[in-house]
């Protein structure tokens, strides 16, 4: 029996996933949660074999939750449900040892089949996602530029970013300027949009 944890913020989709997996004889849904910051605690308590995580979770995004799971509960393999619109996430997902990456509009049997294969230790990656990731390219931003741009995306001022990241305001402006020119954006908002769409943030 494969023990499955489901993390999805949309109640209707979460219920549908639970209902779908409950139909399978060899699967048992041991936990269903709606926030990313609850994933680790719940997983430590219920010890699932596979965690099915939505990529956009409130509290903590799916990939960060997967990173925590990989560090604290390596026996639990993760499968991330994503859209094709953010192909850059594949790179980050692979870095945090996500074993499966399935698009949300895949047929239902792809999910159940993927969970079984991941439980067996295989890696499940949609070829369309690989193609999309290869087209988008890897992020041109350095980790520090990504960090600064991510902070800017929250809407805080340069002074606050500088304080939060222990940098001078001039350095923050330099990082932002570099990021804008690297992603080929017109301004800071455009750079945030482009990077977010590509999954680089």
């Amino acid at each position: 029996m494969i023990r499955v944890l489901i993390a999805e913020d949309m109640h209707m989709i979460r219920s549908a996933l639970v209902a779908l997996l409950s139909l399978e004889d060899d699967m048992e849904v041991v936990a269903e949660i709606e926030r990313g910051d609850e994933v680790l605690a719940t997983a430590l308590r219920t010890e699932p074999d596979v965690a099915v995580l939505d990529i956009d979770l409130p509290g903590l995004d799916g990939l960060s939750a997967a990173e925590q799971l990989s560090a604290r509960l390596p026996a639990c393999r993760t499968l991330v449900l994503t859209g094709l619109s953010q192909p850059g996430n594949l790179l980050r997902a692979l870095k945090v040892h996500v074993r499966g990456f399935i698009v949300k509009d895949a047929p239902a049997h792809a999910l159940t089949d993927g969970i079984r294969r991941i439980a067996r230790g295989e890696r499940v990656i949609d070829p369309e996602l690989v193609a999309a990731a290869l087209e988008t390219g890897s992020s041109p931003l350095t980790p520090r530029e990504t960090e600064v741009l991510r902070a800017a995306a929250t809407g805080i001022r340069v002074a606050q970013i500088a304080t939060d990241l222990s940098l001078s305001q001039a350095t923050v402006r330099n990082y932002l300027s570099n990021a804008i020119s690297k992603v080929g954006a017109r301004n800071r908002i455009d750079a945030i949009r482009i990077s977010r769409d590509a999954g680089w943030l």
Partner: peptide, 15 residues
Amino acid sequence: RAELDTAAALLSAAG
């Protein structure tokens, strides 16, 4: 060139 760079990055990320 961009595709090869990304392929190398993806494979490296996969361990």
